[in-house]
Design a protein around this nucleic acid. Structure first.
Lengths: 202, 202
DNA sequence: ATTGATAATCTACCACTGCTAGATTATATA
DNA sequence: TATATAATCTAGCAGTGGTAGATTATCAAT
C-alpha cells in the first residue's frame, strides 16, 4: 500500500489515457464530418474512418455504438453552430421583421452551404431524440433561436416556432431535391416573412 | 417467306410476351411498395424482391436499371394518388379557405398514413427529375392541385405554391422525425391556413 | 528483471448489400 | 430435327455494418 492510501502512483497516466481517448473521439467526429462534406455521407464508412484515423475498425466501435451514433455526434455539432449563427443573425437586425428575415435566410444558408451537416441534423437517422430528458442543449438552443424571432408575431410561441421551422426545413429539402426553383429562393423567403408579419401578436 | 411477307406467324406470341413482361414489371413495383409499406424501404432489397416475385435477381435488372429506379416507379404511383386525393379534397370544400385547409390536411394525412410512399416521393433517391421534359405528368398534377387552392390568395402562383408545398413537406418531415409535437399538428395547419388567407390576392 | 493480470488493439470473420459476367435452358424458326 | 436467339439462372464481385476471439502492449506486484 502506498503512503497516500490510493494503491497506485499512476493517476497521471490514467488521466493522460482518458485525455487521449477523448481526443481520438473528437478526431473520429471531425474526420466523419470532413469526409461527409467533401464526398457525401455515403463515403463515410467505418472502414474509411478507421483508415483515416489510422486505427482498426473495432476501435471506432469502442467509441460509438453504431454508424448512426457518429452521424448523431456530427449533428449535435451542427446544431450548436446553427444556433449560434441564428442568434448572430437576429442580433444584427434592426427590427423584429428584419430579425425574422435574417434568421430565415441564415437557416437556408447553412442548409445549402453545409449540406452534409444539415443532412446529419435533419435527414439521416442519427438516434437523436428531441424534447426528451437526454436531448442535447444544442437542439434546444436552435429551437430557442427560432422562437426568439417569431415571438413578436404570434400568440402560441411553440406552435408558431414549429410551423416556422417546418417551413424553412421544407424549403431547404425541396430545393435540395430539385423540386423547386433555386432562383426564386429569396421570393419564397420574402413570402414567408410577409405572412408571419401579417399575423397580429396578442 | 410467308404469304403475308412478314416472315413469321407469331405476332400473337410476341404480343403475349410483351404483355406478360409488362405485368411482371407491375408485379415488381407492387411488391416493392407492399414490402416498403409493411416493413420499410430497408427491407426492399433486390434479393427479397426476386424471391417474392419468384424470379432470379437479374430479372429485376432487366426491368429496372437500379434499385433507385424501383423507388422512382413507386414514387410516380404515389404522386398520381396524391394528386387525386388533393383534387378530391379541394372539390368537396365549400369555400377557398376550406379548400386550402382540406388540401393541406389531406397532404399530411397521406404523409402519415402512407409513409413508405411518401418517402419514395420526397425523401429517398429516386432518379426523378422535376420541371424537366421527361418529368412524369403525375408530378405536375400534384403541383397543380396545390396551385389550384393557393391561387385565390396570392399574386405569384408559382412562388406561392412552392412555399405552401414546402411548409407542408416541412411539417411532415419534422413530425416524422420526432422533432415537433404530433398532438399540435392541427394547430400548426391552422396557423398555415390562417397566414395564407391573410394575404391579399390581386 | 520477471511474472501474471488487465487493458487496448488487431485480424479475420459473419451475414448482408447492389449489381453483373457468363453458363444454361427454353423457345421459335428454318 | 438442327440452329439461332431470347430468357433466365447460377455464381460471383466488391463493398457494407458489425463482432468474436486472438494478440499485443501496459500495468502492479514480486
Amino acid at each position: 500500500m502506498l503512503p497516500n492510501g490510493v494503491g497506485t502512483f499512476d493517476l497521471g497516466i490514467t488521466e493522460r489515457k482518458r485525455r487521449e481517448r477523448a481526443e481520438r473521439e473528437i478526431l473520429i467526429v471531425d474526420t466523419a464530418r470532413r469526409i461527409a462534406e467533401e464526398e457525401g455521407w455515403a463515403a463515410v464508412t467505418i472502414r474509411r474512418l478507421a483508415q483515416d484515423i489510422e486505427y482498426s475498425q473495432p476501435v471506432i466501435y469502442s467509441h460509438f455504438a453504431s454508424r448512426d451514433a457518429i452521424v448523431g455526434a456530427v449533428a449535435i455539432e451542427g446544431f450548436g453552430e446553427l444556433a449560434a449563427a441564428l442568434r448572430g443573425a437576429a442580433h444584427s437586425a434592426s427590427s423584429p421583421k428584419n430579425a425574422l428575415a435574417a434568421v430565415a435566410e441564415t437557416f437556408l444558408d447553412v442548409a445549402f452551404d453545409r449540406p452534409a451537416i444539415y443532412e446529419a441534423m435533419f435527414v439521416l437517422p442519427s438516434g437523436l431524440r428531441f424534447a426528451k430528458s437526454d436531448t442535447p442543449p444544442q437542439l434546444r438552443d436552435t429551437f430557442d433561436a427560432l422562437a426568439a424571432v417569431i415571438t413578436p408575431f404570434c400568440q402560441d410561441v411553440e406552435v408558431a416556432t414549429e410551423t416556422f421551422w417546418a417551413s424553412l426545413h421544407g424549403l431547404a429539402e425541396l430545393e435540395r431535391h430539385g423540386r423547386i426553383r433555386p432562383a426564386f429562393r429569396a421570393q419564397r423567403l420574402a413570402r414567408i416573412v410577409q405572412m408571419v408579419c401579417a399575423q397580429a401578436p396578442k
